[in-house]
Design a protein around this nucleic acid. Structure first.
Lengths: 230, 230
DNA sequence: ATGGCAAATGACCGCCAGTCATTTAATTGA
DNA sequence: TCAATTAAATGACTGGCGGTCATTTGCCAT
């Protein structure tokens, strides 16, 4: 009875092939400019076949960007599994996110185009469900060393783990979008290494949330923050 | 020779009417779902006429969102014209941005949909030029009290005004996007006032960038930061 | 061989951004 | 007052794209 299973495998492989083809096209053209005919051609399939595997262009778009979420998840997992002190592991998460931003820029970009109405209104509920679950997994990862640091009394207790996670994440993300978009004006006017600025900004915020003992112990270990003589 | 000028005025009025109609439709449907026919009907004009005034749907979209930029500009102008100490005026900017986010949410949202490839690839260069100039005006406004605070030795000197402006703006913006999108997971899992969190995050960051004297003087005046006993 | 079944196809549909030949309205000059 | 001229507005039309579905293709069991 191996035939059914082989069929299953082949179907999964098709799915992946389609995602890969879609990835190529979406990376090059973005959601709005990409066409299903183009993706079909890249996948060496007919357009009709695509719709056997994915309900809509937007579904396919999400499917591609979920690959990015997996990559980010793995990077985060590695970042907190070092056995280092909790504050260091939190800083590692910032660096991991930066690596993701740097080396997997197109996935990063796709993830924020997802916010558009076009995507949210077209995408099927089941796929949306997967996104939510995925997002939860990643947040849990981020909160892990934060919880530890709180228990160790290294972060201000009036903040919840989720609050801290949200603040740190938003701060990075906000600056990353700015960098990615490279606002024409900023590009010209600002002779500044924006990535270094991002590191600094992260360090500032994390430091501000640390208790005094933690600051004495760990401030010097935060990346690109050595010049800060406080 | 008043006829030519009257014609001019009428044409400008038409332009505004069209923007207003487009605004209604874009607010309701977003860029992708809105149709030019719908906008034409709202404006009580034919579709062809719209194209006499705006080159593309995306141009029209930008034209609408520039109204938002003007509003933000005015709010910022008011925020820094109070004659208060520089640090307070910087904090005012944060509050002004929050007011913009709160009371003019749809403009805020439109401004970040602008980042999509769909908009950038379709919009005409002259309109893009206006956007850049607009952006410059707003950044200048933000940097004004920051420059003063630096001169007064209230902010760490190793940071440039632009760097500080970018950090503060990005931090607010990142969290605002998160709030606006209301990530399904966060909404459920986080029993937290995200707006209060945004204020806190802003205060943390600003405080971290202040020199010690400034901290002694001004920390207590920052919004929603009173509970912070440091 | 042959019937059955899932996978794949591509012609086709409806919708929409954008165009353009034509119509309508306002202004001018005689 | 009435052509003539010019500017503004129109809406039928086109091309392209997302999505569908009746038909075909190819694989397997009998």
């Amino acid at each position: 009875m191996g035939i059914k299973e082989r069929r299953e495998r082949e179907k999964d492989a098709r799915r992946e092939e389609i995602i890969s083809a879609a990835e190529t096209v979406f990376f090059k053209k973005g959601l709005a400019e990409a066409t299903m005919d183009e993706i079909a051609e890249a996948a060496e399939l007919s357009k009709g076949t695509l719709y056997l595997y994915y309900k809509s262009k937007e579904d396919l778009y999400i499917a591609v960007s979920l690959r990015g979420a997996d990559i980010l998840h793995d990077l985060f997992e590695k970042a907190i599994a070092t056995g280092e002190p909790s504050i260091k592991r939190i800083a590692n998460l910032g660096e991991a996110y930066l690596e993701y931003f740097d080396k997997h820029r197109m996935y990063f970009r796709m993830q924020y185009f997802q916010e558009s109405t076009q995507v949210h209104s077209q995408v099927s509920p089941e796929i949306l469900q997967i996104c939510t679950e995925n997002s939860r997994r990643i947040w849990d990862l981020v909160m892990d060393p934060i919880k530890t640091a709180l228990e160790e009394g290294l972060l201000h207790r009036e903040l919840s783990p989720m609050e801290i996670a949200v603040m740190l994440w938003s701060n990075s993300n906000g600056l990353m979008r700015l960098i990615d978009r490279q606002d024409e004006y900023l590009k010209g006017a600002l002779g500044v290494d924006l990535v270094a600025l991002l590191r600094k900004s992260n360090a500032f915020l994390l430091e501000a949330m640390m208790t005094e003992e933690a600051q004495k112990q760990y401030t010097s270990t935060l990346p690109h923050h050595e010049s800060e003589a406080k």
